[in-house]
Design a protein around this nucleic acid. Structure first.
Lengths: 207, 207
DNA sequence: GTTTAAATTAAACGTTTGTTTAAATTGTTT
DNA sequence: AAACAATTTAAACAAACGTTTAATTTAAAC
């Protein structure tokens, strides 16, 4: 299902931004409609309800990750280089869809909404499986340690990134960033370096 | 300021749970009042407004962290043992006040509310400074690497923890946890091990 | 050009929201 | 016991919410 037309995509994009800025409850149908340049009734008309709009949004965004992971798995690269590419992939995705991740992590943790868990979790499971294969390759090659908990590595990568983004105001203040660009530069240099360094240190086999 | 009487504390505790379960906008003054066993008007009467209730809540919870950090700094322990105690401290705090962290990380990242940033950030800054001292000790002793970004370590610890808690439904499903206890046990064993292992690997000086 | 379906609109629906009011109750002081 | 302040209450407030309706415009099909 779910080919979206131009107007629907416009609504999804506006909703993504507003949900992230003001939360699901905080963003009103009226504001979304106004920003998207459509009538309020169009949202019910296209998506059924506000809640189903959120579901559509999540599915709209969590579709292409699998492909990119498989691309890395298939590449002919040394294990540690694959880790570099993996971290870059996560960072790029969170940078590109920062609004989305903000919404997801809040709405998924809320007890009020159940969302379309099944389909969303299936995507996540598939992604975890591919990630584990990449780690397994490095372990089989004797390059990575085997006494680690591979399933928790994505949690550390994404958790660190999301945490720093959520506390952006704090980092901006202690480092004196006065523009958005400076913060983004910090994310792309220092933070990226820290995460790669951390994951590689964890995986490194001290033979 | 801010000694709270029994009734105020009751309201704060109920608000903490409801804000975390349903979000700031999702939790209504009426529900909070009902669960706390007080009249709706009492919340305005005691705290002024719903927003000020949130501020009071955050301040109420972010007061004792500094003391505990200083306790670790003052202890006479080898650097790596201090890391163990640090990670345990973070984990215990997030376990104990999981509601609080859920609220904070969402409300701080939202553009709608500005909160009482100044006082809250000052607490955070002080905590960061103490943390850095603990790392510095290990570096001075030649046990820790010096080419690391110490400021980002707490982000990795807390980010990993919060991320896993937020995606609890996912982990429950892939590991087949059917009770709250099993998930909490997982947090206290595997996740704790993973985080300690990761941070220690990052800090370890390969001499 | 007529007919049928899809898209779009403005208006209204009934709830729920946070907050305020003004009266009633309780507690404390004199 | 009287007087005063602090607490607690039920009721009302206007505003905002998500959704629905029924009428209108646009597009497609015949």
């Amino acid at each position: 299902m779910t080919e979206f037309n131009e107007k629907q995509i416009e609504i999804l994009q506006v909703a993504e931004k507003l949900f992230a800025d003001e939360g699901f409850d905080g963003a009103s149908i009226r504001t979304i409609a106004k920003d998207a340049g459509v009538n309020i009734a169009m949202i019910s008309y296209y998506f059924g309800s506000k809640e189903k709009l959120l579901e559509a949004l999540i599915m709209y965004r969590t579709s292409d990750m699998k492909m990119q992971l498989e691309s890395i798995l298939g590449d002919d690269l040394p294990p540690f280089d694959k880790i570099d590419r993996l971290v870059d992939l996560y960072i790029n995705r969170i940078n590109r869809h920062k609004c989305m991740y903000q919404i997801m992590h809040f709405e998924l943790s809320t007890k009020k909404r159940i969302l379309s868990m099944e389909s969303f979790m299936n995507v996540k499971k598939e992604n975890t499986a591919i990630f584990r294969k990449i780690i397994q390759e490095g372990q089989d090659a004797g390059v990575f340690r085997t006494d680690i908990i591979a399933d928790l590595i994505p949690a550390t990568v994404m958790g660190t990134l999301v945490h720093i983004r959520n506390n952006r105001a704090y980092f901006e203040q202690i480092y004196g960033f006065d523009t958005e660009e400076k913060f983004e530069a910090y994310m792309n240099t220092e933070v990226t370096k820290h995460i790669k360094q951390t994951i590689k240190a964890l995986l490194a086999n001290e033979n």
